[in-house]
Design a protein around this nucleic acid. Structure first.
Length: 248
DNA sequence: ATTGCGGGGATAAAGG
DNA sequence: ACCTTTATCCCCGCAA
């Protein structure tokens, strides 16, 4: 089921790109424009001042520090419990190798690590391995005691012959730092999804967010195409959202 | 010395 | 056959 939904997401993503291509006068390249988009979104995240803030906080953003995160964690955990009743995924589905899940599907994209992590974060059975610290900001943390278990499940899911370890999985996470899809934050075993990834993985979350970046975009700054791209991207996900229930 | 965590080069694997 | 992207393997440093 989750697999099917991700296909829809991917399709919506590509539809959005196609719309932009049709309305664009210049050359448009999927990967490079998406990368620019990611870089831009991540740039905005820095400007806004996230948990690992670099001392630059916009005036409209509340001051944010780890104390407030910790204090808010209990509430967030409660929110998570609401979804637990809706998402009771049997263990055997979690361990099912991606190879088997892909059987019969044509051109199905491989499951990406960050998708698996997000899926685990939404699965109450995995709460002993990985948990949200601040779901709205996409900050999550591995549980030291059981992080190896999560890594092993990831390896099984991919159908690896050798067992996956946290060390190797964390290396993949560090690779995400290059593209900004997931960044490491100072806290032990704690990482953060980028805005773009959060939007991509959580349509419901995305729909509740304002277009915060629009105020930073000036047409003469070369960001126009990114802005258009994003608008179509948003539209596609709104359409998707109407057809599907909200996920975590 | 050991352990836990994080960094990064090199390379395999897979898809276009 | 080549290129790019992503994941994996492996070795390193640092601090408790």
């Amino acid at each position: 089921m989750a697999c099917v939904e991700q296909d829809k997401l991917g399709q919506a993503f590509e539809d959005a790109f196609e719309v932009l291509r049709q309305h664009s006068t210049g050359d448009l390249q999927y990967s490079s424009d998406y990368k620019n988009y990611l870089a831009f979104i991540n740039h905005c995240s820095h400007v806004r001042g996230n948990s690992n803030s670099y001392g630059v906080l916009p005036t409209e953003e509340p001051v944010y520090n780890w104390r407030t995160v910790i204090n808010g964690a209990a509430d967030l955990y409660f929110e998570g419990n609401i979804h637990q009743s809706l998402q009771n995924i049997p263990e055997n589905q979690l361990v099912q190798p991606a190879v088997l899940q892909q059987k019969g599907g044509k051109g199905r994209k491989k499951l990406r690590l960050f998708e698996y992590l997000h899926e685990s974060l939404c699965n109450p059975e995995m709460a002993s391995c990985i948990q949200w610290i601040d779901q709205t900001k996409g900050i999550f943390q591995f549980v030291s005691k059981n992080k190896e278990k999560l890594a092993q499940l990831w390896g099984k899911r991919k159908g690896n012959r050798k067992t996956m370890t946290y060390q190797k999985m964390a290396r993949a996470l560090r690779n995400y730092g290059r593209t900004g899809e997931i960044i490491k934050i100072r806290r032990k075993l704690t990482y953060q999804f980028s805005e773009a990834i959060l939007q991509r993985l959580s349509p419901s979350y995305f729909l509740e967010k304002e277009f915060f970046y629009s105020q930073y975009v000036q047409p003469d700054q070369g960001y126009l195409s990114l802005n258009n791209w994003n608008a179509n991207y948003n539209c596609a996900y709104a359409n998707y959202h109407e057809l599907s229930h909200a996920d975590c």
